[in-house]
Nucleic acid binder design. Sequence first.
DNA 1: GGATAATTGAGACTGAGTTGCAACTAGGAA
DNA 2: TTCCTAGTTGCAACTCAGTCTCAATTATCC
Lengths: 174, 174
Amino acid sequence: MPAIERFAKYLSENRLKMTRERRAILADVLSVRGHFDVDDLLARLRRSGHHVSRATLYRTLPRLVESGLIHKVEMVDGQARYELMIGRHHHDHMVCLRCGTILEFESPEVERIQEDVCRRKKFVMTGHTHQIRGYCVSCAGDDRARALDSRGSNVAGRSRAGAGGARAGGRTGP
Amino acid sequence: MPAIERFAKYLSENRLKMTRERRAILADVLSVRGHFDVDDLLARLRRSGHHVSRATLYRTLPRLVESGLIHKVEMVDGQARYELMIGRHHHDHMVCLRCGTILEFESPEVERIQEDVCRRKKFVMTGHTHQIRGYCVSCAGDDRARALDSRGSNVAGRSRAGAGGARAGGRTGP
DNA sequence: GGATAATTGAGACTGAGTTGCAACTAGGAA
DNA sequence: TTCCTAGTTGCAACTCAGTCTCAATTATCC
Ligand SMILES: [Zn+2]
Ligand SMILES: [Zn+2]
Ligand SMILES: [Zn+2]
Ligand SMILES: [Zn+2]
């Protein structure tokens, strides 16, 4: 089933409306591969001439998540990312502290162990977050790398471009 | 080596000073078992008659982390926790979405797999975060549980006591 | 073509955490 | 011990992601 149709179905099933804004957001989301954040999305929307307010975007993303079209990646650095989940299945992430690159990994073994642990502790798991921090190939070996994290305030190069005005930042994740 | 001495060593090695505030914070941190957040700590400090500003607390915690005495647990819900690490080793966490209880687990197997993955992707790992969300024994089976998370905005019962004034909240994490 | 409930945008607000700055103080030098 | 200076503190203003309020707008059902 086409994404737009799937979203429409989800909406009508929940007595929600298919608005121009929601259509624009979905269209944009479908056009990106990889992980993106709210600012990325907003910048692209504006560039393509759509007027969607930040509030509306923040209100729509959870709908797209609930409809199963995208997935929210709650980053520990406090900046959530999203990714298209159509035809994909669960995986976890590795984040480069210098360039921001996000790699993916999956391990049925780890998933199994998680369930074992939960069973043992009688814990009902509803979700999990598993992120590896460090430096990707092209950033490792760099001077700035090393040290930081593990012990110490692990906050390194955020990709946030300084930005000029209040919240106009245009980011373009690698 | 006693904690206070270890901290003093760390401080002098870094040309930092052992102030009354730092001593009070360390003493308090040493008196707690389990995971605590900044508000917990601040409330206890005030209760025990110490005047330590929020800013100072935020400035001191990274020092305690760097000295290896405590560890920062970056929660995905945006509220960092800390825990004493003296005589302990690495572990990860399970967080109850209803009561806030934090359980711990450790799996050498998972840690090994992580390293394998990194080796394979030529990623230099400096740290990781692995958190399982769900419901603990006493909260599972409850009505409010179920649904939420996994798909949908996984935000459930934060332990935050309503609190009256601006930031006076007294929390007492289980 | 309405009626009506959902939606939108703007801006105020929240909450965790950070920062600039003037006053203060630990701790080595004299 | 007294001085001197770099480090420290508290406060308040600020940042930043995200949420909320509310009047105006609009999709959908009849
Ligand atoms: Zn996983
Ligand atoms: Zn991914
Ligand atoms: Zn681990
Ligand atoms: Zn722990």
